[in-house]
Every structure is written in C-alpha cells, then in structure tokens.
Nucleic acid binder design. Structure first.
Length: 938
RNA sequence: GCCUUGGUGGCGGAAUUGGUAGACGCGCUGGAUUCAAAAUCCAGUUUUUUCGGAAGUGUGGGUUCGAUUCCCACCCAAGGUACCA
C-alpha cells in the first residue's frame, strides 16, 4: 500500500480540529511566543501557491517553538475590505459582502488542507462590524488628538482647547497645518464655533485637506495609480486628469522622527529598514523666503544647500502650486496654462522617470534675492514636485545637476560660486570639498561653516531658518469607494463632527449600485435611510426636512490599510466586545515576536501600522511602541505570465515564433491555465475565455499557437495564478509544504515552477519506507550502530541551526541526505527513527503524526520536546585535507577532524615535504579552517 | 529616474569568516529488474581537451598568495514609488 497521504492528511486534520490541538490560552506556565503572518486579502482567484510560502514557513517555526516549550500564538484572519470585491460588485451587482464571504470560505478550505496550526478561534476579518467598530474607534481617537512637539507625543484636543483659552496658540509647539495663523486667548474666545472647529481641524491627527487625486470623469470616480495604464483608465480606457478633492488625511508626518529612530530598536531586515528610512527621507537644511517683485507674498523654499545661496540664478515652482496663478504675468499666461495642462495629464511617476526631457515655462515674474537684491526669474518646471518640501526650489545650477541641466536647456545664466572648480561640463555637487567663492560673507568657507553662518544670518534677517524636512507625506485616508470602513463622522455647518463610541460601529449601508452617484458623490451617497443610530434613523424616516442635508454623514470610506494597521492586537482577544483588546490579553502577549510577510509592504502597511502603534502607545492603550520585534520578508513567489501578441490596430493575433521586428504588436495577457507544457495555447479555450477573442483571427505556426512568457507578480489581474489545490490532491499537503520550502531561500523571490516536486515526494516515500515494508511496521528496538547515530545527530544539529536561521531549504537537503544514509545502512531502530520523526514534524506534520501514533506516542506529536544534539555521537575520523603554500604547492595531510590550530601547525612542520619547502623559515600567517583547508603564508 | 533585492550547469539551488565551486533535488544518458510498461534500484552528468591539463559563478576593472564571497563602474531581471493589497 505504502504512503497513503490522502487518508493520513484527512485523518490528522480531523484529529486536530476535534481536539482543538492549536487552541491557545492567554496565560501559561510556558514562555509566550507570538508568530504572525500578514493576513491575506481573500481574492476571487482563491489562494495561490505564493500565499502559503510565508504561512508554511511560519507554521514550521510555530511548530518548532511548540516543540521547544513555548506557548505559541499563531493566528490567522482576512484583510477583507478591498477594491477587487468592489469592482466585481460593479460588474455583476453582487454584494461585496457575499463575494467576500464566498472567497473566505474557499480560502479556509484551502488553508485547512495544508495542515496549518492556526488557532482559528481567534480569526479576524477587517470587514466585520465587530472588528471595524474598533478601527472606527481608533479613527475617532486620532480625530480627538494632536501632536505636541514639547511632550513629543499625542495629547488630547481637549487639553489643546484649554491652552488656547489661556494663551491662544502662540506658545504651542505642535504639528499642525502650515496655514494656521497665530491668535491670542481673546481671539480664541471670540471665534465662532465654525472658526474654532476649523482651527482645531488644523491640529487634529486626522484632518480634512485638499489633496490631488486621479480623476476619471467618464467613470465618475477616482482611480489608483494602479488602475491607470499609459495615462488612461484600465477599465474603459478613458482619460484621467489630476483634480483636487477634499480628503481625510492622517498626520503621519508628526511621527517622522520616531518612525525613523524606532527602526534602530527592531530586528527587521536591514534592506527594509533602509527603504523606510529613505521613504521618511529626513534631510537637514533651511527654509528661505524670497520676496516676489510686485507681490506681497513670499516664496518659501526648502534647500539642503543654503550655503550655495549666492549661486541662485532662478527659481522653479511646481506647476500645480496655487501661487503660480497669482504671479504669472499676462503675456506668459497662455504658455503657463498650456504647460500646467500638459503636466496634469502625466502621472507623478512618469514625471520622475522622465528626467532626460527637460521642460518648463517662464512665469514672467521675478523674486528678489534676500542678500544681493538681484532679480531672479521665476520658472515653473515639472521636475519640482508639489508635495515635496514646499513645492518650490531655489535653483543653483552650479551646484545641482537638475538645476544645471534646466539652466543649460533654457539658456539661464550660471554663476560659479566654487573656488578653483570648473563647471563647464556639469554641476559641482561634492559637499565635502566645497570652498565658496563670489559669495559675499561666505567667501572661503566650507559647506559646514557656511551652512551654520548663513542660517544664522537668515534667521536674524527673518528671511529663513534652519529646518529639518521629511519626505514622508501625510497619508490620504479617504477613498471614494463602497467596500471599506465608513468614516464615523457627520457634518454640521460644513464642519466634521465625531460620532461617539456608543454609536459605533457605523455600519456600511446597503446601496443599489456601487458606482458614484450621478452628482459625483462617493458610492455611499446612493444609500437611503442611512443614519448612525436609532434616534437618528427615526429622524431620517419621520421628518419632512432633508436630514441628510442638515447632518450628512461622511460618504468617503477608509483605505485598505486602516484595518491592517492594528489587526495583530485583535488576535490576542478577538471576541472582546468591551475593548479593542483586553488588558489581560495585551499585557500577557505584549507584542509580536516574529512577523512574516512580503517586502512589498515596506512603505505601506509596515509604516502605517508602526504609526498607529506609536499613537496608541502615546495614549497608554498599548504596552510597547514597536509592535514586531523581528520581521522576516518571505520572497514573493512570482507568476509566469503568458502573452499573446496582437498586431497593433487589428484583431489579428500572431503565434510568438512568427513575430516580425518591423511590425508593432501589443502583448495581451492570457490565462496561464490555457497554456500547455510546450508553451502552446488552447485557442478554442481562449475564444470561450473572453468575448474579445471569440471573433479574433489567430495566425498559427505549424498548427499551434505559441505564447510569450514574462515573470511578474502573481495576481488575478495578470491571469497567472496557480492554485495549490491540484498539487495537494496529487502529492499531498506534506509534499507541497516541503516543496515550497525546498524551492529556494525563504527571503528570495522566485518564479513558480512545479518541475521537481517529485523529488520531495520521493523523499517522503523513502522516509515512510524506513518504517514500513509493504504494510508491515518494521521499526525495531535494536541498538543502532554508530554510523546511524552519527547521521542522526548531524541531522539534529543541522536542522536545529537551519530552522533558527530560517534556512528551510537546506533543512530539506539535510533530511534527504539523512534518509538516504539510513536507508543504505538499513537502519530501522526506534532509537534513531523516533527523534527523526519529531525533527520532521514541523515540515511534514501529517506524516509525522501518523508515524508517531504507530511508534506508540501519546497524544499529538506537537507537544513533544525537540531532540537535542549530542556531540559525543560524532565520531572522529582521519581524513585527507589539502594544504596549499602560497598557491604554488599543494599536498595533503592526514588530519583528524578534532585537530586544533596548534596540532595542525605541528603536523605541517613535521611533514618532510614541508620542511624541504620551508628551508628553515617560519610561516607568517596560518589560515586554518576546520574540516577544510590549511593555508600558510610566508 | 529614484529606493530595495537578486544574477552560479539544461533547470531550482548549495558553498560557514575570503580557502577543494556546483551539495541536495529535477531533468537527461546508460545499466539492473520486467513479456512490456510504471514503480524501484545502481552508475554517470559545468564546458573543453592533444586526456597532461585548461577555462569557468551577468560584463569590465581592482584588492589578495587565494575572490561566487570584498571594492569600483556597467548590463539585465524582480519588488516598491504614496488610492492594488
């Protein structure tokens, strides 16, 4: 019969479910260990082979930690709000809640069949009202707090009002809207309610502001950059423009410095921390005010090189800056407007990517240099981004390459302010060796000296100040979508008012359709009879007044990252109805010991969640201000997308081997499941798959149609998803688990490829054969020979070390070597096979449980202590090792494994060939690597 | 463009601190077993060769007695680039 994985896996999955083997309590004698996976978005394509990679790794580690005597929290849930469910709803009219539920059911079935040791009693779903109630609650807390720079933490708005009443805002050192003007206590008292709310909004940690979005008029909706392809909407191909809309934002910038410094205290991959550091983008410099000729306003610029201020020969503003409209002179207005229109049609990414194309327009206006009083022409150019710094730069062409290129392109004069440096070819950007010239009071100074002096002088003149700038922008928190958490706010006289905790959750209303309203309001605007509590509901139903217009609820919803910014605390106490997490639970579990997920979240989820953590920590609601001690990025399993090629402007598709270089083709993605092993597509299947192919013409090559391939992210929209179900069915979960680990290093991205899975499956069958011959259980109580014990202990050592360093791929090689050796030694001794089974159980849990039961183990193998490596079983043996002298001479020495450096030195010196070569000279340097090579340098 | 990661046989990958490159697996070739096939087992498998060797870890340089490993420049691929999750 042999290894019947189907029966075994079914049996043990049922056993674990029945005995609640993985249920964990919020208290224990054992030390705690919280191992967390990034929860999946339940997409309609089902779980693909990439998802389990991280879950298998974390499951192996969780099981390993249980063997090592830890109380392990290993939960799972669903990030169940998101755009795909909504788009599906738009297309089909199906409620996203229904499709989401269907998808979750499918995911659960798929997850269960892989034998994960999740404690499902703690499942969370971000789209459940009893979960998003607390997401909304956290939003209200953010709304009710501001960031005080003196206390260096978030404080309540109530305390801010108290300070306003006493002193106005003059002594307040807080992170706030730059447009807020100073006022006295008296002013504050005299402000009307509307004005007061407006001022407070400028301080709140979540606030309303005007931000730019991608607006698609035809679809009547806002689009993600992701939904825009070549400047037009992915859906429908309509044009997209930039538009300013009133949006909720999160003042994450208040936490810039703490987000940066916190990185030094957590064990996350250095590359990921570097990415976050760059994203936060701290730079030290100065802000400088330039007066505008004939205008009362100033231009404020941020520069990291205030020392080069005497090299300024022009200024460049971002085209979308409001100021541009105020300063542009009439005869330049047409040119400026045309240019602005052009830039609005380009995405920011295109603008940044396209640096070779220098574009810009002169506004006709001039600024005044704060020191020389020179007139400085003001230009606009799309290399200046509106949302970085102040959206304006003082251009120093001699010291900045982009300014240099711009000046050369438009024939703007370049002043050289560097001593003994030529700027004929390019700008001089070497800070460290800067010596200034033609710079008045800065002449002869270095970068550092000039920087300090010029900031001092600017501050004295009131024309600027030293400042620290962060690239990190406040996070836009509004989405004009249906399938997200409603923002718990209503409006009174146009100002946002917070709902109270008792009114939460503010449930998503039912709507007839999921597109924006005809008036352009977000989809929630389609809701009728929507109110935030029963009292309000009655008012809505019974009054003649249009209540929705008097106290309208916020119609935007929250973004995908809202729920995922705190879900890991909910797992600790998922059923709690009184609190987002109970104090007993959070005090016991504290934080996440190991977090596994992809590096694609580096500057999204992993930054936002740290921000919320710090905020909740400030309020005393969480015990630590970094939630994940250690983080590992599992590499993404990439898909291998299939492409067919359409002749541009036609309906003719050409087999890949018939492509000609003189014709332009459009590559179109097709479902990889329609492609066979020889890279040929099933044309009939393709015609049925999507209507656009039903009537198309296909040019075959020798009767077949070949596709092209490209490796990219596995995603439903790229039609390259491979599901694990088939593999589970054919080889079993244990094989799939081990194969995914065997594919390569955990951290590395790798394209999915099923070839090779049989090797891992064969290993499990060989393993099984150590225990069974035909159907007879052949394990003996005999004493194993020394070689078998040596093999076992070498394996224990290797596996323990490799699990602890997450090198699961090499673990599997070690298992294979071990089983091959035991097979050839014909070893069936219980003394060897029992520990080996425990060793294997994190990797192949079903098989291990089955054998464990047969070996007479009591209960589940899960709690069994992990085998301990015993050095004494490693037998020393004589081996030949090569020795090289300066790479010129090489011979071998018979040495024992245990020899230390001194013994090797003696052995070399006692060898007659060595003595001949040495001619009495003593070696200078000994390089001795145990077990390997000895190198002696003279 | 910018930030991050990676590039080793036909393929996935291994190689500890700079020390015998190619572990382990897939595939392929040959053999055993079989009426035959599947399965299993054994042997071989970087390239080249005048069979002594020689070359070889994306490309070109550098450091070193010695480089897959360290440094510089470049090429290619993937992830992120702020409304995909």
């Amino acid at each position: 019969m042999g290894y019947d994985f189907k029966e075994i896996e079914k049996k043990w999955q049922e056993y674990w479910a029945k005995h609640e083997t993985f249920k964990v309590l919020n208290h224990s004698e054992k030390p705690k260990f919280y191992i967390l996976d990034m929860f999946p978005y339940p997409s309609g394509a089902g779980l693909h082979v990439g998802h389990p990679l991280g879950y298998i790794a974390s499951d192996i580690f969780a099981r390993f930690k249980r063997h090592k005597g830890f109380n392990v929290l290993h939960p799972q849930g669903y990030d169940s709000f998101g755009l795909p469910a909504e788009q599906y709803a738009i297309q089909t009219g199906q409620h996203p809640a229904k499709t989401t539920q269907d998808n979750i059911s499918r995911y659960r079935t798929q997850l269960d069949q892989m034998g994960f040791s999740f404690d499902w009693s703690r499942e969370v779903r971000t789209s459940n009202p009893d979960f998003y109630k607390w997401t909304q609650w956290i939003f209200l807390l953010l709304f009710d707090h501001y960031y005080c720079n003196d206390a260096n933490k978030a404080l309540s708005i109530q305390s801010l009002i108290g300070r306003f009443e006493k002193d106005g805002n003059n002594n307040i050192n807080a992170v706030c809207d730059s447009k807020i003007q100073s006022f006295s206590a008296e002013d504050w008292v005299n402000f009307d309610e509307h004005k007061k709310q407006e001022v407070l909004l400028g301080y709140r940690l979540t606030y309303l502001s005007h931000s730019e979005v991608n607006w698609c008029a035809e679809l009547g909706t806002v689009l993600a950059n992701d939904e825009i392809i070549n400047g037009v909407s992915e859906r429908g191909g309509f044009s997209v423009t930039k538009k300013k809309m009133k949006q909720w934002s999160m003042r994450i910038s208040a936490y810039s410095e703490r987000l940066l410094s916190g990185l030094d205290r957590i064990d996350w991959p250095e590359s990921l921390k570097e990415m976050q550091r760059n994203w936060i983008g701290k730079s030290i410099g100065a802000k400088v005010f330039f007066a505008i000729e004939g205008n009362e306003k100033n231009i404020e610029v941020f520069t990291t090189r205030p020392d080069t201020i005497f090299g300024v020969t022009f200024m460049t503003l971002a085209p979308e800056l409001d100021l541009v409209q105020e300063i542009v002179v009439s005869n330049q207005k047409d040119a400026v407007d045309t240019y602005i229109k052009e830039t609005q049609q380009r995405t920011q990414r295109e603008r940044m990517a396209d640096v070779k194309n220098i574009t810009g327009v002169f506004t006709g206006a001039y600024a005044i240099h704060p020191f020389t009083g020179n007139r400085i022409p003001i230009w606009i150019g799309d290399y200046v981004l509106a949302d970085y710094g102040t959206g304006a730069v003082m251009a120093v062409p001699c010291g900045d390459q982009r300014d240099y290129d711009f000046a050369k392109h438009f024939n703007i004069p370049i002043t050289n302010i560097f001593k003994n440096v030529s700027i004929e070819e390019e700008a001089y950007t070497d800070k460290a060796n800067t010596v200034l010239d033609q710079s008045d009071f800065l002449n002869g100074l270095s970068y550092k000296e000039a920087m300090l002096l010029v900031i001092k002088v600017l501050e004295e003149k009131g024309s600027g100040a030293g400042t620290i700038n962060y690239k990190l922008r406040d996070a836009v928190f509004s989405r004009q979508r249906y399938w997200g958490e409603p923002i718990p706010v209503y409006y009174k006289n146009g100002m946002p008012q917070a709902l109270s905790l008792e009114d939460l959750p503010l449930n998503l209303p039912e709507v007839e359709h999921y597109l924006p309203t005809p008036e352009g309001a977000p989809p929630l605007g389609n809701a009728t009879n929507w109110a935030w509590n029963e009292v309000e509901r009655k008012v809505v139903a019974n009054t003649a007044i249009d209540h929705a217009k008097v106290f309208p609820l916020e119609l935007n919803t929250m973004p995908g990252w809202a729920g995922s910014s705190w879900y890991f605390y909910r797992y600790m106490d998922a059923q709690n109805t009184d609190s987002f997490v109970g104090s007993e639970a959070k005090n016991y579990w504290q934080d996440v010991d190991l977090y596994l997920g992809g590096s694609e979240h580096a500057t999204g989820h992993l930054l936002y969640s740290r921000f919320w953590q710090k905020f909740l920590f400030d309020l005393g609601l969480l015990p630590v201000d970094e939630y994940a001690k250690k983080l590992i990025n599992q590499g993404m399993i990439l898909g291998s997308s299939a492409f067919i090629y359409r002749i541009s402007g036609s309906q003719t598709y050409v087999s890949k081997d018939l492509l000609k270089s003189e014709i332009t083709y459009e590559p179109i993605r097709v479902d990889v499941n329609l492609v066979n092993a020889s890279e040929e597509i099933d044309v009939e299947g393709l015609k049925k798959w999507q209507p656009q192919f039903a009537t198309a013409i296909f040019e075959l090559s020798e009767g077949v149609f070949k596709v092209g391939r490209e490796v990219e992210k596995m995603s439903k929209s790229k039609y390259n998803v491979v599901n694990p179900d088939e593999i589970c069915d054919q080889y079993g979960a244990d094989t799939l688990r081990m194969y995914e680990m065997f594919l390569g290093p955990l951290e590395q991205a790798k394209p999915w490829n099923t070839a090779g899975i049989s090797g891992v499956h064969n290993f499990l069958r060989k393993f099984w054969k150590l225990f069974y011959k035909e159907d007879e259980f052949i394990v003996t109580d005999s004493i194993p020979d020394k070689k078998a014990l040596k093999t076992l202990h070498e394996t224990i050592k290797k596996i323990t070390e490799d699990i602890e360093s997450f090198s699961f791929n090499t673990c599997i090689s070690s298992f294979m070597i071990c089983v091959n050796e035991l097979t050839s030694l014909n070893c069936h001794s219980k003394e060897v096979l029992r520990p080996l089974t425990i060793l294997l159980s994190p990797f192949a849990p079903h098989l291990s449980e089955e054998i464990w039961e047969k070996l007479g183990g009591v209960g589940s193998i899960v709690e069994e202590p992990f085998p301990v490596f015993n050095k004494s079983f490693l037998i020393e043996e004589e081996k030949n090792y090569p020795v090289s002298f300066n790479g010129k001479m090489r011979f071998t020495l018979s040495l024992s494994l245990s020899l230390d450096k001194q013994a090797i030195q003696e052995a070399v010196l006692n060898d007659h060939r060595t003595l001949e070569y040495l001619e009495g000279k003593a070696p200078k340097k000994w390089i001795i690597v145990p077990n390997k090579i000895i190198n002696i340098v003279f």
